[in-house]
Each structure stands twice: as structure tokens, then as C-alpha cells.
């Protein structure tokens, strides 16, 4: 726990130094720093807008939804249905994997099994609806359909394999995050 704290502090310090560097770069017109600032802003803007409401919704989910509901739909015994739900949830998750990681952890602690959360995380980066539309318009609908058509079954199969592997290890996801 102590180690974690100092680790966090050092992350804040690194971040502070980085922001200082970006600001100084702007002032003295240091091109590399300015470009880095632009890259930074692309992701920072999304995170500032998406993460706070996403975490409020995760909080509501953890307090309100009973374990039973999740066990029935995403649990070990719910067969192929849990993969379909996981993919549907992934397709509508705003913010891609950044949001999918904490959601997956909450689902797990509510009784979802490994294979459904693996399917969820991996497909969150694969089938996000707005991204897929953009892809189809630039690379062609055929490209997108092949990519999704081949990847989804493989994702489900790999999730099932990984889940059985982790069951043998008696692996548990981190709690209290």
C-alpha cells in the first residue's frame, strides 16, 4: 500500500514536469514540444470529457445492480448469451478500452466470468460503432465486414480458452480499484 502511494506521487510529479515542459515549449516556440502538446491534447480532451461521467455510471452500476442479474447474464452458466451481451455492450461503450477496463473489472466483481469480460474488452476495441463507420467509409465496407466477421468468432474462442486457463490458475482480478 505504501509503495503504491509513492508510485502515485511519482506519477503526479512526472505529469507535472511534462505539463511544465509543454507550456515552456509553447512560450519559447520549441517545435517538438508543441507537437507533443497537440498529441497530448487529442487524448486528454477525450479523457476529460468521457471519464468523469463514465465513472459516475460505473458507481451507479456497482451500487444498484445486484449480483444475481450479472451472474445470470454474464456468469459461467449463461452459455453463448454472455458473449452476445458482451459484444453488444462493447459496441455501445463510449471511449473504447479506456472505459472498458474499469467496466470489465466491475462486471467481474459482480459475478461475470472471465470469458465474458475478455470478449467484452477485446471487442470494445473492435466493434465500436462510430469507428467502424469511419473505417468503412475510408477502407470500404467489405474491409470492415471481413475484419469484424473474422475477428468476433476468434475473440469468443480465445476468450473461452483464456478463461479455462485462468480457472486452472485460480486467478483473480485485482479488487479495490
Amino acid at each position: 500500500m505504501k509503495k503504491k502511494k509513492t508510485n502515485n506521487t511519482s506519477n503526479y510529479i512526472i505529469f507535472g514536469v511534462f505539463i511544465g515542459f509543454l507550456i515552456v515549449s509553447r512560450i519559447i516556440n520549441f517545435e517538438l514540444g508543441i507537437e507533443m502538446g497537440e498529441n497530448f491534447w487529442i487524448f486528454a480532451r477525450d479523457m476529460i470529457l468521457i471519464l468523469p461521467p463514465a465513472f459516475i455510471i460505473i458507481g451507479l452500476f456497482e451500487i444498484w445492480v445486484d449480483r444475481e442479474t450479472i451472474e445470470n447474464n454474464f456468469g459461467e452458466s449463461s452459455g453463448i448469451k454472455k458473449h452476445i451481451y458482451a459484444i453488444l455492450l462493447a459496441a455501445t461503450t463510449v471511449g473504447g478500452t479506456f472505459v472498458a477496463f474499469p467496466v470489465a473489472n466491475s462486471l467481474y466483481h459482480k459475478g461475470a466470468d472471465y470469458s465474458s469480460i475478455f470478449t467484452y474488452i477485446t471487442s470494445a476495441s473492435l466493434v465500436m460503432i462510430p469507428m467502424s463507420i469511419m473505417e468503412a467509409s475510408i477502407l470500404g465496407l467489405q474491409f470492415t465486414l471481413i475484419r469484424i466477421g473474422i475477428s468476433l468468432p476468434l475473440v469468443v474462442i480465445s476468450s473461452i480458452i483464456l478463461a479455462s486457463l485462468f480457472q486452472q490458475y485460480h486467478y483473480h482480478l485485482p479488487s479495490d480499484v
Binding site: N8, Y12, F15, M47, F55, I56, I58, G59, E62, I63
Partner: peptide, 19 residues
């Protein structure tokens, strides 16, 4: 309670996102 839960979770992971 839900809002606090969300806020606490967010504060815990924030350094990770910043990194």
C-alpha cells in the same frame, strides 16, 4: 453513495491515466 464510489474509483486510477 454511487457518486462517491465513482469519484473514489476515478481518483485511484487517475495517476495511471496521466502516465
Amino acid at each position: 453513495k454511487s457518486i462517491n464510489r465513482g469519484k473514489n474509483k476515478f481518483m485511484k486510477i487517475l495517476p495511471g491515466y496521466l502516465k
